[in-house]
Computed example of a mutant assay.
Amino acid sequence: MSETVPPTRRALVRDVVAATLDAGVPMVRGRVFRARTWPLQREHFPALLVYGYDETKTLTNMSRGEASYDVTCTMAVGLRVQEKSIDTPGTEADLEALAGAVCLSVMTAPALRLSRRGGGLDVSIGAARTTLGIKTDGETAIGEGVIAFEMAWQEQYALPPPELCEEFSLALLLTPSVP
Rank of each mutant, 00 (worst) to 15 (best):
E3G: 07
T4L: 11
R10W: 02
V13W: 01
V16Y: 02
D22T: 08
G24P: 02
G24T: 07
M27E: 15
V28M: 09
R34D: 05
A35W: 10
W38R: 15
W38F: 13
L40E: 11
L40G: 05
R42G: 15
R42V: 12
L49P: 00
Y51C: 05
T60Y: 11
M62V: 11
M62D: 04
M62C: 06
S63Y: 04
A67V: 08
S68T: 14
Y69H: 07
D70Y: 10
T72P: 00
A76H: 00
R80T: 10
E83V: 03
E83A: 14
S85P: 01
T88W: 04
P89T: 08
E96V: 11
A99D: 01
G100M: 00
A101V: 03
L104F: 10
A111R: 07
L114C: 12
S115D: 06
G118N: 02
G119N: 13
V123P: 01
I125N: 00
I125F: 03
A128E: 06
R129W: 00
T131I: 10
L132G: 04
T140Q: 12
T140R: 12
A141E: 10
V146M: 09
I147V: 09
A152E: 13
E155N: 03
Y157I: 12
C165R: 08
E167L: 12
F168E: 12
L170E: 13
L170F: 14
L174R: 13
T175C: 05
V178H: 07
